[in-house]
Amino acid sequence: MDEEYDVIVLGTGLTECILSGIMSVNGKKVLHMDRNPYYGGESSSITPLEELYKRFQLLEGPPESMGRGRDWNVDLIPKFLMANGQLVKMLLYTEVTRYLDFKVVEGSFVYKGGKIYKVPSTETEALASNLMGMFEKRRFRKFLVFVANFDENDPKTFEGVDPQTTSMRDVYRKFDLGQDVIDFTGHALALYRTDDYLDQPCLETVNRIKLYSESLARYGKSPYLYPLYGLGELPQGFARLSAIYGGTYMLNKPVDDIIMENGKVVGVKSEGEVARCKQLICDPSYIPDRVRKAGQVIRIICILSHPIKNTNDANSCQIIIPQNQVNRKSDIYVCMISYAHNVAAQGKYIAIASTTVETTDPEKEVEPALELLEPIDQKFVAISDLYEPIDDGCESQVFCSCSYDATTHFETTCNDIKDIYKRMAGTAFDFENMKRKQNDVFGEAEQ
């Protein structure tokens, strides 16, 4: 370990593993360490099931009705991949897709007046949907046509809207959309967690709705994908990429100290040895004095023996409960997957309800979601602090990732990755940087 590296990475969460992969592909010498004996950090999948019970201090362990412990891979952080989103792009560019198998999530649902409705995925579904009345549908269709044709580089498509100054509230007004449709559009399509976006320039919202539609167009059922064997497969896929390009991995490796000289990182000390480096990437748990708390998320993992009611017996789905429907500031989400994804025993389902904490009784906040899941065989409640770095790391060369937020997709995580890359490399992130180099010394032969 007593060696000189360009970059040392602490923690094998998804953000850290993707950055480690990119740095290795770009010719950097990388050492990647984790104090845990497993990959994934906060974003790991726990197996066998006995391990999950232990982690949540349920000492009696799983009953026999849960089947074989080894058949379970339970995500600690519930997220899906947008089919046309940035993480899929990263997987394709790096060819990490060859280590993973994905399934399309069967449906996306939205909560309205105590019931759940399928988010329409085709024009026919939209016309048949009970989510809105006849005239509302016509106006909504006009709005969707506007979004589909919108091109930020072609003012002819703006229809009198200025993407940089017109607020989204004004765009909704222009198409005369009612409150329910606005809730549905902002939260189930643009996937905002709160209503803060309404008074911001509309460009980002329009682009988010386009991303949803384009992702949906790829597979038809929903815009989301999920990897077989759980999300823990993602960091491992990128760790393989890093290793192929010469990255060194050490799990179960305690970090005793991060060594600084004149305010700059110069190395990491572990078990009496020092590895030197020019730059350091880590998750917040490794540098508690360089991060601040930015809120909390509650996630309740529920094991069920039945599909969720009114989802047409889907073996995977997402449910969004827009905040307006339950008098909150932030949406509540449910991600459900099952034995069909090799993450649970035969006939079992895993539904994870999550939201940003707003009160001193977080469990009560998630109740509307839990009511949709009854009866629940077993619950595991996790309340996590969200951390963000206190500075950009440019001076110390210590670059810290943000905690995983309450969103049900990876777009915010990818933004964090691109942002850290830019601060480390001094140049904007470009997907081309992730391409495997042809015929290089570490390149794998085609399968």
Results as ranks from 00 to 15, higher is better:
residue 58 L to G: 04
residue 114 G to E: 10
residue 85 G to C: 02
residue 297 V to G: 01
residue 292 R to G: 07
residue 162 D to C: 14
residue 69 G to V: 04
residue 9 V to G: 02
residue 153 N to T: 00
residue 334 V to L: 07
residue 352 I to A: 02
residue 298 I to V: 07
residue 389 P to K: 13
residue 73 N to F: 10
residue 295 G to L: 08
residue 194 T to K: 13
residue 4 E to A: 01
residue 66 M to T: 08
residue 373 L to C: 00
residue 341 H to R: 02
residue 386 L to M: 00
residue 167 S to W: 14
residue 348 K to D: 12
residue 365 E to P: 05
residue 398 V to A: 09
residue 264 K to Q: 13
residue 335 C to L: 15
residue 220 G to I: 15
residue 145 V to F: 05
residue 246 G to S: 07
residue 147 V to T: 00
residue 246 G to C: 09
residue 176 D to C: 14
residue 108 S to E: 15
residue 42 E to N: 10
residue 17 C to H: 04
residue 159 E to S: 09
residue 401 S to V: 07
residue 210 K to L: 11
residue 420 I to S: 02
residue 21 G to L: 11
residue 376 I to L: 05
residue 218 R to G: 05
residue 24 S to D: 10
residue 353 A to L: 14
residue 310 N to E: 09
residue 204 E to W: 14
residue 375 P to H: 00
residue 124 T to S: 07
residue 322 P to V: 04
residue 322 P to Q: 12
residue 186 G to L: 10
residue 412 T to M: 06
residue 317 C to M: 10
residue 134 M to T: 07
residue 238 F to R: 02
residue 105 V to S: 06
residue 285 S to N: 09
residue 199 D to G: 08
residue 213 S to I: 11
residue 73 N to T: 11
residue 119 V to R: 05
residue 288 P to K: 02
residue 431 F to M: 15
residue 105 V to A: 08
residue 311 T to P: 03
residue 226 Y to H: 07
residue 242 S to K: 06
residue 112 K to P: 02
residue 433 N to Q: 13
residue 357 V to A: 09
residue 405 D to F: 00
residue 372 L to M: 00
residue 63 P to L: 09
residue 438 Q to H: 05
residue 402 C to G: 13
residue 95 E to W: 09
residue 315 N to T: 09
residue 98 R to G: 04
residue 164 Q to G: 14
residue 447 Q to E: 06
residue 312 N to V: 12
residue 264 K to W: 11
residue 218 R to P: 07
residue 409 H to N: 08
residue 40 G to S: 03
residue 246 G to A: 04
residue 341 H to Q: 00
residue 168 M to T: 07
residue 364 K to I: 09
residue 407 T to D: 15
residue 373 L to E: 03
residue 314 A to V: 09
residue 203 L to V: 08
residue 64 E to V: 11
residue 436 R to P: 06
residue 292 R to V: 03
residue 137 K to R: 02
residue 283 D to L: 03
residue 157 T to I: 06
residue 336 M to L: 06
residue 166 T to A: 10
residue 57 Q to K: 01
residue 203 L to Q: 02
residue 416 D to H: 13
residue 64 E to Q: 07
residue 141 R to W: 10
residue 108 S to M: 11
residue 435 K to D: 12
residue 33 M to C: 11
residue 149 N to S: 09
residue 32 H to E: 14
residue 11 G to A: 05
residue 3 E to Q: 01
residue 98 R to H: 11
residue 157 T to N: 00
residue 278 K to V: 14
residue 132 M to I: 09
residue 18 I to S: 08
residue 399 F to I: 03
residue 432 E to P: 07
residue 161 V to F: 09
residue 348 K to V: 13
residue 271 E to N: 12
residue 86 Q to K: 00
residue 152 E to H: 14
residue 117 Y to L: 01
residue 174 K to G: 13
residue 204 E to A: 00
residue 172 Y to I: 14
residue 344 A to V: 07
residue 317 C to G: 08
residue 184 F to C: 06
residue 427 T to M: 09
residue 259 I to L: 08
residue 246 G to T: 04
residue 433 N to L: 15
residue 118 K to L: 01
residue 185 T to P: 04
residue 339 Y to F: 02
residue 210 K to I: 09
residue 381 V to E: 02
residue 48 P to S: 03
residue 115 K to N: 07
residue 328 R to S: 06
residue 445 A to V: 11
residue 217 A to T: 09
residue 406 A to I: 14
residue 113 G to L: 13
residue 425 A to D: 02
residue 80 F to L: 02
residue 70 R to H: 05
residue 436 R to C: 05
residue 208 R to F: 15
residue 218 R to K: 12
residue 32 H to N: 00
residue 230 G to S: 01
residue 21 G to C: 09
residue 15 T to Y: 14
residue 113 G to C: 13
residue 323 Q to H: 07
residue 429 F to L: 12
residue 274 V to F: 13
residue 418 K to Y: 12
residue 105 V to R: 10
residue 15 T to V: 04
residue 428 A to G: 15
residue 9 V to L: 09
residue 368 P to M: 13
residue 157 T to P: 02
residue 236 Q to R: 03
residue 408 T to I: 06
residue 66 M to G: 02
residue 300 I to K: 05
residue 381 V to W: 15
residue 123 E to R: 02
residue 419 D to V: 08
residue 97 T to Y: 15
residue 267 G to V: 03
residue 84 N to D: 10
residue 31 L to F: 03
residue 307 P to L: 08
residue 78 P to H: 00
residue 328 R to H: 12
residue 439 N to T: 11
residue 341 H to T: 07
residue 190 A to L: 12
residue 13 G to N: 14
residue 133 G to A: 07
residue 382 A to G: 08
residue 61 G to E: 11
residue 282 C to Y: 03
residue 6 D to M: 02
residue 142 K to T: 08
residue 192 Y to N: 04
residue 367 E to A: 10
residue 277 C to S: 07
residue 191 L to I: 00
residue 198 L to M: 00
residue 290 R to L: 09
residue 159 E to R: 02
residue 153 N to S: 12
residue 76 L to M: 00
residue 187 H to L: 06
residue 446 E to W: 15
residue 128 A to V: 11
residue 14 L to Q: 08
residue 203 L to F: 11
